[in-house]
Design a protein around this nucleic acid. Structure first.
Lengths: 242, 242
DNA sequence: ACTGACATACTTGTATACAAGTATAGTAAA
DNA sequence: TTTACTATACTTGTATACAAGTATGTCAGT
């Protein structure tokens, strides 16, 4: 297990972060991608040896993952909980809840700057597609929604967002990398969804917002299916290797 | 600053927890009570010396508080953010959001056991009043709401609850301790509010639930006012001492 | 008086050391 | 064969050590 590590989380997203945070990101996405199996037990010492760091940053990483319910810290080792299909649906329950709340607040605000910013991000996404950069696209996708959440200046809503964000980010990233290869045409549909968001915010029309949330949710359903496909694939590969 | 520590967080609530978690609880309630001032800077070394532990559990505690937005970890020290009145209102926005979501789910479930459990907790609260035990009352109060949240078996809603819980717990505890001395008659009103909750869950009548949430919210408003009073008092005391 | 360099005393992040507790395998006895 | 015990090799939690970076105050030079 002490072979050279192949990192799958984009390094430039965590360039300035501490080792602990970097490790958490990497472990998180591996668990979500199914590379680290549900039910397996992680030991601080083994992880420290694998990643060639001391236990201090490993402990930090495990605490972070435990606070996201991705692992469960027990007396003898950290049990990998991972994400079930139910978990992912519930994550999006929360996201829907947040975005609905946020939208109600947005209705009372001047949205000129917000719309401008979202349009910029939307164009960034377009560029990312042009250059077939799944990571960059995912980054802008998450940033788009985060920008909306931040716009209402609500500390606790932002806290919830920040709590759910890492898992969501990993889900989107994995899904987008996959679509880049197999379902590239999906990208324009995702882009279109974001247009609907912008329209809803600009017009302050609840009906359009509901449409945006609805479309987003449908897209999510597919994301989830993608993910399970990918997990099954990974599992099959592993079985074949054995 | 290295005098013997007077702990204000109930020790038996954290008897089995690690030093880091215990320290987080104590620091949290001190910050919320205003004993540690907003804007002041906490250093790991100084805290370690004050509490006579090493930096390891201190670091753990600071990470926890940072994840609750109570402090802000910067390069040179942890800045105490504390809670503004706005923060507390926003906290209860979130609580209202969660409980509304939960209630919609509860409507679809068999609530026999839940009602039984809530009734039990309600009686415990009554006993706590009888023995003028503000801490026990607060504990049961938080447990009451947590029991409702847990009943729908929703991992991410529970995650949000767990994130907001420590701050809420501290707020309730401080408020109840104060009322025990000065506004004891409030206890029966709080108890009555919980009856409305039980009734709403038993009858599955949205109107009653809205009433319960509404009453709770009004009570919260008073809690917040209490807290600011207590903070002002503390500040005045300090000024007089100087 | 004012500015810039530098020593110093802080800060955090990471590595390592030690202590206390727990699961496990293997062995001895019934 | 089964059961009880014990040695052992793990586990985490906490303390300490070290490294690298940052704010601050002093002092020299202008």
């Amino acid at each position: 297990m002490s072979e050279k590590q192949n990192y799958i989380y984009p390094e430039k997203w965590i360039a300035n972060a501490s080792t602990g945070v970097r490790l958490a990101s990497e472990l998180r996405i591996r668990i979500i991608a199914g590379l680290i199996e549900r039910g397996s037990v992680l030991s601080e010492n083994k992880l420290a040896a694998e990643f060639e760091v001391s236990r201090s940053p490993i402990r930090e990483a495990l605490k972070i993952l435990a606070s996201e319910n991705i692992i469960r810290l027990e007396r003898m080792g950290a049990v990998v909980v991972g994400l079930t299909e139910k978990d992912i649906k519930e994550l999006y329950d929360v996201r829907l809840m947040i975005e609905t709340f946020v939208y109600e607040r947005i209705l009372k605000l001047d949205t000129t700057n917000l719309v401008k910013e979202l349009s910029k991000i939307r164009e960034m996404m377009e560029v990312a597609i042009k250059y077939k950069d799944a990571d960059e696209f995912s980054y802008q996708d998450v940033l788009f929604h985060e920008t909306i959440v931040r716009s209402i200046n609500h500390s606790y809503i932002l806290l919830i967002w920040n709590n759910a964000k890492p898992v969501m980010e990993s889900l989107i990233l994995l899904s987008m990398r996959m679509r880049m290869e197999e379902k590239f045409e999906d990208y324009s549909r995702v882009l279109n969804n974001h247009d609907v968001y912008i329209e809803a915010i600009q017009s302050k029309d609840r009906v359009i917002m509901i449409k945006a949330l609805h479309q987003n949710f449908e897209d999510v359903q597919e994301k989830v299916e993608d993910l399970w496909m990918s997990q099954q694939m990974l599992t099959k590969e592993k079985e074949q290797n054995i």
